[in-house]
Design a protein around this nucleic acid. Structure first.
Length: 509
RNA sequence: GCGGCCGUAGUCUAGCCUGGUACGAUAUCUGCCUGCCACGCAGACGGCCCGGGUUCAAAUCCCGGCGGCCGCACCA
C-alpha cells in the first residue's frame, strides 16, 4: 500500500467535502485543471476578500476586471510572444526532450544563451552537433513551444488572440483610464483578481501548477524620483526571512532575518515601495495562518527573472507536501511595460511632475496565485485529533461560520434548532443546519470543513431559551441566550470578543 | 516528455500472481434508538478509469490511451 502524502490526504478531504477536485473527472480527467465546489468557492472568495483588505487602498489602489482573451498586439508589444516561446529538441534515440537554449549553455559553455535569440541557438545546435545528454544519441529538428494559449476571433478567424498568461497586462492597457479615475494623482495602483491561462508542458502537483488559475495582481505606479514610501512604517517592524540575490549566487540556503523597514536601506530591495508590499505580503500570509518560520522571500537571479523584471523576490511558503513553494512574486517591472505599450500602441503614458517635467511611471508588482494560497491555507490549518480531520481555519476565512444542531432528533428539539438556524441565517451568517446523526458525528463533520462555532439545542434550551456554543479548536463549550446570538456572534467574528466571552454567566450544563 | 509505482461504490480497501462479473469497512438515504464529541440495530442505494486484443469467459492476462504520486526534465 502506498502511503499518501500530505497533498493526497488534503485532496481526499477537499474532494469529499466540496472544496475542490480535479476537473473533467467523468471524461477521465485532464491534468492542470481543478473545479471548486460549494465550500471551496466560498473559501476562495473569503481569501480574495482578505487580500483586498490588505492590498487595496481606497481611492489610491483601484480594482479593475479586464478580458482574459487579448488580441495578439498586446502580447507582441509586451514581449510575451517572444519570451513565452521556447525551442525544444527531442532525442531520436531515447525520446527525452530538452530546451534548446539549455543544451547550448551546457554543452557549448555559453552563458544566458536565451539572449542570443532563437535563430542563433538553432544554428549553433546544428553546427556544433550537440548530442543527447542522457544517451548521446542524435537530436531531431528543434520544435517550437508556445506556452500561451492561442485562439482566433470571429467567423473567419483572421484575428489571432491569446489567453492572458498574467492579469497584469490589463492594468497597463488601462493605465490612462485608471489614472483619471485616481484623479491623476501619483502614486496610484490598479489591481485585478482574475483567471489567467498557461499551456504548461506537464503540470504536476495538482492545485499548485494549473493551466488555468486565478491570480490576484497589483500594479503600483510611482515616480522613480519619489523613492520614499510613506506607508513603509505601517509594516516596518515586520521581520522577514530573506535570501538575497547575492546569497542565491553563493548558494547560501539559510535566510537572514531582517525588518521590512531596513530592506531598502541595506540595499536588499531596490525600492521602498517594493519593501512595503513585501511587508504587507508577509502580514497577509500570517493572517491566512502561515507561521513566520514557514515564510521566506527568495531573490531571483537574473537568468531566473522574467523579461520585464529588474528585481524579483518570490514569497515562498514551506509546505509539508512539496517543501518551499512560491505563492507570490514581487517584481520591480520598472517602466518596461508602459513603455512597451506606448511603443506598441502609440499611446502616451507619461505623467506630468509638479516641476512640469514628464516621466513614465515605474511599477512594483505583487502577484499572488490564489489557488496556491487555497492549498497553503488548508495545509497550515490541518490538524488531526482523535482520528478526525480538522481545518483550524482563521475564522474570517471559514466558508461556513456556524453549524446548528439539535442534540437529539425528538421532543421538539429539531424544531427549536430550526428556529435558531433561521435566526442566524436571517442575521446574515453563513450557517448550516444538520440533524439526525449523533451529536459527535455532526461536530466531526463540521470540524472537517472548518466551521468555527457549533450551536447545539438541548433540553435546557426548551426551558430557558439558551443554547450551547462549541469551539472547533478546543472543543470547549459555553452557554448563551438564543436572542443574543446574532449580536455576540457578530462581535466574535469581528474579533471583538473571545470564545469564552461568548458565554454569559449562565452556568454551563 | 523519460523512468518507477499505481488506478475496484462518495471514501478507504480485499480479490489480480494461479481468468468464472466482487469481500469488508465507512459515508449517504429510510426506520428504530438517542441527553455533548464519527454509539447501536434493521433495511436501501452505490463500484472494477477508458478503448482494443487473447479467451467459451477478463477486475484479473496483453497492447494503447487517460489520470495520480515519486525521481529527472520543464514551470518563461
Amino acid at each position: 500500500m502506498r502511503v499518501p502524502n500530505m497533498y493526497e490526504k488534503i485532496l481526499e478531504i477537499a474532494s469529499r467535502r466540496g472544496f475542490f477536485w480535479p476537473s473533467f473527472e467523468i471524461y477521465g480527467g485532464l491534468s492542470g485543471f481543478i473545479t471548486y465546489g460549494n465550500i471551496g468557492t466560498k473559501f476562495k472568495r473569503n481569501i480574495e476578500d482578505l487580500w483586498r483588505t490588505f492590498f487595496i487602498k481606497p481611492q489610491i489602489i483601484l480594482e479593475i476586471d479586464d478580458p482574459i482573451i487579448n488580441p495578439e498586439k498586446v502580447f507582441s508589444a509586451s514581449g510575451h510572444l517572444e519570451h513565452f516561446k521556447e525551442y525544444l529538441v527531442e532525442c531520436s534515440v531515447c525520446s527525452n526532450v530538452y530546451r534548446a537554449d539549455h543544451l547550448v549553455e551546457e554543452q557549448l559553455k555559453i552563458e544566458h544563451a536565451e539572449a542570443l535569440g532563437s535563430e542563433k541557438i538553432i544554428s549553433l545546435l546544428k553546427k556544433s552537433r550537440v548530442k543527447c545528454p542522457q544517451c548521446g544519441g542524435a537530436l531531431k529538428e528543434p520544435m517550437t513551444l508556445l506556452t500561451m494559449f492561442q485562439m482566433t476571433i470571429g467567423l473567419k478567424g483572421d484575428e489571432i488572440a491569446y489567453g492572458r498568461p498574467e492579469t497584469a497586462q490589463g492594468m497597463f492597457l488601462n493605465f490612462r483610464r485608471g489614472f483619471q479615475h485616481a484623479h491623476e494623482k501619483m502614486p496610484f495602483g490598479l489591481a485585478q483578481i482574475g483567471k489567467a491561462v498557461r499551456n504548461e508542458i506537464s503540470p504536476r502537483r495538482g492545485i499548485i501548477r494549473l493551466r488555468e488559475f486565478t491570480m490576484m495582481e497589483l500594479e503600483f505606479f510611482f515616480d522613480p524620483k519619489q523613492e520614499t514610501c510613506p506607508w513603509l512604517r505601517e509594516v516596518g517592524d515586520e521581520e522577514v526571512n530573506i535570501i538575497t540575490e547575492e546569497m542565491e549566487e553563493q548558494n547560501v540556503k539559510t535566510p537572514i532575518k531582517e525588518k521590512i523597514i531596513n530592506l531598502s536601506d541595506i540595499g536588499y530591495v531596490k525600492t521602498e515601495w517594493q519593501s512595503y508590499f513585501m511587508g504587507v505580503s508577509k502580514k497577509f500570509l500570517k493572517a491566512l495562518g502561515v507561521q513566520d518560520e514557514k515564510q521566506r522571500f527568495r531573490a531571483h537571479l537574473p537568468n531566473e527573472r522574467s523579461h520585464y523584471s529588474a528585481q524579483t523576490y518570490d514569497h515562498e511558503i514551506l509546505t509539508e507536501a512539496w517543501g518551499w513553494i512560491e505563492v507570490a512574486g514581487h517584481a520591480y517591472r520598472t517602466d518596461y511595460d508602459l513603455k512597451a505599450h506606448q511603443k506598441g500602441s502609440g499611446a502616451d503614458f507619461s505623467v506630468l511632475r509638479s516641476d512640469s517635467s514628464r516621466f513614465v511611471p515605474h511599477v512594483i508588482e505583487p502577484s499572488f496565485g490564489l489557488d496556491r494560497l487555497v492549498y497553503v491555507t488548508l495545509e497550515c490549518s490541518y490538524r488531526r485529533k482523535k482520528d478526525r480531520n480538522i481545518f483550524a481555519l482563521p475564522k474570517r476565512l471559514a466558508p461556513i461560520k456556524i453549524s446548528v444542531f439539535p442534540l437529539v432528533s425528538k421532543d421538539g428539539l429539531p424544531e427549536k434548532a430550526g428556529e435558531v438556524y433561521k435566526l442566524l441565517l436571517d442575521s446574515g451568517f453563513p450557517v448550516d443546519y444538520e440533524e439526525g446523526s449523533s451529536i459527535g458525528k455532526m461536530y466531526a463533520r463540521a470540524d472537517e470543513i472548518g466551521v468555527p462555532i457549533a450551536v447545539t439545542v438541548d433540553y435546557r434550551s426548551m426551558e430557558d431559551e439558551t443554547v450551547t456554543l462549541r469551539d472547533r479548536d478546543t472543543w470547549t463549550q459555553v452557554r448563551q441566550k438564543i436572542k443574543l446570538l446574532p449580536k455576540i456572534l457578530d462581535q466574535y467574528f469581528k474579533d471583538q470578543i473571545t470564545f469564552r466571552e461568548l458565554g454569559s454567566n449562565l452556568n454551563i450544563a
